[in-house]
Design a protein around this nucleic acid. Structure first.
Lengths: 231, 231
DNA sequence: TTAAAGACATGTTTTATAACACAAAAGTAG
DNA sequence: CTACTTTTGTGTTATAAAACATGTCTTTAA
């Protein structure tokens, strides 16, 4: 695939926001957007940095996380392709409060926030897009707070697996379409790596999932949802 | 105070957003806004309800909370006068995910969301106001998740006390300007009521605070912040 | 003014989960 | 291929916090 074609596909991928724009605004984006590749486990931005550009994930998988107490990191949310991220801090007038890193080799489109806000001034649809997105994410964060603080280990892990299914989907053979280290699964579910491993094992014993290395195959999604709700 | 004067004062209180509006928009608000009083402990809205109106707290104190597992409720955030709330769900296209109730006798201004979005279409400043607010709140929610899941009881309670100071301020004698039941303090800090009581007692023993019923007087704010960070 | 209900306080027991320790497996580099 | 690091897996111990129990104090109500 030569460079022109690659860029063309990316432009199409930005679709969701793209169709809210007129030709002039699209031109502005084309002129200012940059494409950047990140290797597996490469940092995309760091806590404390000043946000200048918003990002749209074109390819790959990205985690937004925080380094907590005593090196225990906590994954806040996961990004899938064609999701926008890294704009919150700029809008709040803050530096980044989180870190972002690529789970796997990823491609990101960077758009200067100055350009974005310039467009927003004259385009209500784009404002509405961000308001809806922020509102949805705030709702998810509120739910998450209760889940992580009140549910037991089994419930939290089940919840995480379900959210991974929702984000990245299942292959034809019911394998979750992302391969995470046990440690990441633990950081997502607010538990130690040992307990993530142990609890995954009990799920296997209960025939809710099967494991093959990092491949997680869902056997009984109904039961998994039940564990997430009650356990 | 007669009715006209009361309304006049409320209008001035809406200041922050008020000055973003032109005369026509202000008229629209005046015609559609309603003032409503809530008694102590009265519910303002419930989870599952369809949001139709945004609210601005004019007087009193309000808690936004969620009923979690087994009746354990979790306070998500506290509202102080001249803060707007109850708009997230509408913007996200959802029903309310939280409950809201008055801590003490409170006065609320209700503004139909239809009117708000109508104004937003032609007023970028109002869009910006909500985007900034949502972005700030999302940042707070992310911080909170890590604090509630990773800090120990002492740290969580200290954190809650500090956030109460930040929200409601201190009297001249260093008393926190809100009187919460131990149970509410517990629901704010993700712990049982017993543990909130116990931990408050240890804070008294350590001369960080003094207690007189529900009055909490801050003796050593520096130490409290240290406990919140490390403990 | 005396019950009754609710909030506050504190000691004891139980339990979920972290912390630790070690081993096996798998991936990585020299 | 071999050594080395990282990841996974499992048993054991320690501990923070919930659950439970009980009593006192305070407010409300009859």
């Amino acid at each position: 695939m030569h460079k022109g074609e690659e860029t063309y596909n990316y432009s199409r991928s930005l679709n969701e926001v793209w169709r809210l724009l007129n030709e002039q605004e699209r031109m502005l984006l084309r002129q200012n957007a940059k494409i950047q590749h990140f290797k597996k486990n490469q940092q995309i931005y760091c806590e404390g940095e000043e946000p200048k550009e918003m990002m749209c994930l074109l390819k790959g998988k990205v985690k937004i996380y925080k380094e907590g107490i005593g090196g225990r990191s906590q994954i806040i949310r996961m990004i899938r392709p064609i999701q926008y991220f890294a704009y919150r801090a700029y809008f709040a007038g803050e530096n980044y409060l989180t870190d972002a890193a690529a789970f796997e080799s990823s491609t990101v489109c960077l758009i200067p926030m100055k350009v974005v806000t310039e467009i927003m001034k004259h385009n209500y649809n784009v404002c509405q897009f961000f308001i809806r997105q922020l509102s949805t994410d705030l709702g998810i964060a509120d739910e998450r707070t209760v889940n992580l603080t009140q549910k037991h280990i089994r419930g939290r892990l089940a919840e995480s697996l379900i959210s991974l299914i929702d984000s990245y989907g299942l292959e034809e053979d019911n394998t979750i379409n992302i391969y995470l280290a046990r440690e990441d699964l633990a950081n997502l579910s607010n538990m130690t790596t040992s307990n993530a491993i142990r609890t995954l094992s009990t799920f296997v014993a209960e025939k809710v999932i099967t494991l093959d290395g990092r491949k997680i195959k869902i056997i009984d999604e109904e039961k998994l949802r039940k564990i997430s709700k009650l356990g």
